[in-house]
């Protein structure tokens, strides 16, 4: 952004909802009850986004580049072993707690203000952009991300790619070299293609719901992931957010306990664009 324009529009830029008039705001809803933790989304992300396979040693050293990871926990948030039970059990009798964790595309992203070269910034359609060719690799954003979903290219991973594996690389986006931070983009190349497509069809301001699917959503065997435009009142993701009473622009939701929607680390006021829905267990059995 031009310095002059930034100074001129300072008060507008400082508004809480900076992009309120934009027609898009990409968001996601993930149903943790449907999520089985199978990992199809993770592999799909590797395939779609040219993520490098780092190998055993580098994985062990913490250089893995999975934009999406499936975390699982054995306990409830309050450390009780299972819902409605306080005493420890020999076994995780209610199964595991899976949660796919990727960039939450925070609307008040802590990573954005700290980048010295503005390589990460908020796009008008509500994405937390990471511009690879602008990144200088100060890694401040990675520290400041509470979800720890930013991945740094500590090596030139793609140089290890043996022939003919490089033929698989997706030509729609770049292959990152060493010294660059990267993260989940909500498949920005697909969003871009979808918008172009809408423009071809002659309705540039409205991408039809379901036209743009992220790679993880596309492959999810149980369709636990729903992606779409939160500003489109008829979109599935908007309906899910509304049904689960999760609203934007707040760090605490005013909703009944038994309504399942929530956003992770909402209390930090980072405004994630990803809503999760509680996992469910039948307590009678």
């Amino acid at each position: 952004m031009g310095l002059r324009r930034m100074l001129e529009n300072w008060s507008d830029l400082r508004k809480r909802d900076y992009y309120e008039n934009e027609p898009y705001m990409w968001g996601m809803a993930i149903d943790l009850d449907k999520c089985t933790g199978c990992g199809a989304c993770v592999t799909a992300c590797y395939v779609e986004n040219n993520l490098p396979v780092v190998g055993k040693e580098k994985f062990a050293s913490g250089y893995a580049m999975h934009w999406m990871r499936i975390e699982h926990y054995w306990t409830e948030p309050d450390d009780s072993p299972e819902i409605g039970q306080k005493e420890p059990s020999d076994h995780p009798e209610r199964g595991a707690h899976f949660i796919p964790m990727m960039c939450q595309q925070c609307n008040h992203a802590p990573c954005e203000p700290v980048c010295p070269v503005a390589a990460t910034y908020h796009t008008p359609d509500g994405l937390n952009a990471q511009v690879y060719n602008r990144c200088v690799g100060s890694r401040y954003c990675g520290n400041n991300c509470p979800f720890k979903v930013r991945y740094f290219n500590f090596f030139d991973f793609w140089k290890d790619l043996p022939e003919p594996l490089e033929q698989q690389l997706n030509p729609d986006l770049s292959v990152r070299s060493k010294g660059i931070m990267e993260k989940c983009t909500f498949c920005v190349q697909r969003i871009r293609a979808g918008k172009d497509h809408a423009e071809d069809e002659g309705h540039p301001h409205s991408v039809e719901d379901g036209t743009i699917v992220t790679a993880c959503q596309q492959t999810c065997p149980t369709q636990a992931i729903v992606f779409g435009n939160l500003k489109d009142k008829s979109s599935r993701v908007h309906q899910l957010w509304a049904d689960h009473q999760v609203k934007l622009n707040r760090h605490e939701q005013d909703k009944p306990e038994d309504v399942r929607g929530y956003r992770v680390f909402e209390e930090l006021n980072v405004e994630p664009s990803v809503m999760y829905m509680d996992r469910v267990r039948d307590t009678e059995i």
Binding site: M1, E8, N9, D12, L13, Y18, Y19, N21, E22, Y121, T123, P124, L127, A129, V131, Y132, N133, R134, L173, S174, T185, V188, Q189, R192
Partner: peptide
């Protein structure tokens, strides 16, 4: 004019 003010370069339009 109200729209003009929020018109940043959107790097992600062309670089990703």
């Amino acid at each position: 004019k109200a729209k003009i003010v929020h018109a940043p370069h959107d790097c992600w339009k062309c670089h990703f």
